[in-house]
Design a protein around this nucleic acid. Sequence first.
DNA 1: AATTAAATTTAGACAAAACTAAAAATAGGT
DNA 2: ACCTATTTTTAGTTTTGTCTAAATTTAATT
Lengths: 218, 218
Amino acid sequence: MTRSEENYLKTIFHLGGGDSKSITTNAIAEQMETKPSSVTDMAKKLSEKGLVDYVRYQGVSLTGAGVKTALSIIRKHRLWEVFLVEKLDFTWDEVHEVAEQLEHIKSEKLIDKIDELLEFPKYDPHGDPIPTKDGKFQERDEKLLSEMPINSKGICVGVKDSSVPFLKFLDKNKIALGNTIKVMDKEDFDNSLRIQMEGKEMRISHQIASNLYVKKND
Amino acid sequence: MTRSEENYLKTIFHLGGGDSKSITTNAIAEQMETKPSSVTDMAKKLSEKGLVDYVRYQGVSLTGAGVKTALSIIRKHRLWEVFLVEKLDFTWDEVHEVAEQLEHIKSEKLIDKIDELLEFPKYDPHGDPIPTKDGKFQERDEKLLSEMPINSKGICVGVKDSSVPFLKFLDKNKIALGNTIKVMDKEDFDNSLRIQMEGKEMRISHQIASNLYVKKND
DNA sequence: AATTAAATTTAGACAAAACTAAAAATAGGT
DNA sequence: ACCTATTTTTAGTTTTGTCTAAATTTAATT
């Protein structure tokens, strides 16, 4: 497994090619900021290795082996993110770039020990689930804040957009994972929300609300 | 800085090319298990970048910038080794391979935080000094056990050979860094030593004694 | 069913890092 | 000073991953 191969598998998984849905070369190229022709080359190689099914002009989807490999990389990425935040005081907007490098370190013992050190976390700093060693996902019953009905309560458990600007915005506005949320009111005009977060009232744009995951209470 | 460039600089430093001594391409090739012709190519590239002085048919030596870069990689390698042993319960014979990968992670913040987490260790698990952030070495007054006079005492502080077999041998014989050592007697015949280690008497071959560093007490 | 626009693949090239085999330079011994 | 063995470099290939530009296939529209 080269680093490049691993990055392709990860991207295909994230684009939804895990459940045998076919992902186009263009979509992969755009996501990875490379050219479609490069993707074609890699598709052939990964197909040779039995990690993806590739049909010319149709796209690629991960095989069982491909999913397994992708999950192991995602697992490493997310565990390293937790490590950086929990043990080294990184902020959640700083971890992605470094984890992109650390996820390629080849040592099963290393990642298992990191997992143990962190006491087997189930979610990463952005609320994304960490696959278990045997590739199982800890799915959670969550919905977007923008889809919560008025008067419903919940806990903020994840972000959909984990870009640096969005995360910094959340920090600035004291919106953090784990916070309690109650939807007070919706504004028809611009779809903004009036919410209570940890008891304090605030107004939130639709943009923001549609990028925050909430676990419903009642 | 590519990974390969970093590995060359590190090797040149270890072969003694830090103090402007010229190291031959052959020596580098042997150390890195590659071919002299490959070394020549890299020597030209590193010379272009101002990291080594290279004279055809004469060899290479590190420039100031080259030494600085080499030390920063060695620093990272050794700090990661300490991390693996102290925080993840790796044994001292398991750390090298993984540290070889981790040393190439690019993030100044990461290594500084690891340093802090470990409380700024001065030596790695094999007793090798860890360069400071500004490239200074913590040299220690140490000598090989084989060179200690009879009746002198000291503390075992490092290994010269840090190969897996040697380290495992030391473990098996309960020889560890930090142990007190007293040289009782030398055998002229085979240069073996009779020593007291942590109070217990044992016999040690010249082979072993010439790969253990000791800090003299008196 | 034909045409056209968009997506995708092919073909050929390049850069990095390595290798092999052949050529060139150095150093040692007489 | 010359010859020879060794070391080192050069020249030409290979592999991996990328690119551009041209060719092909698919899909959408009429």
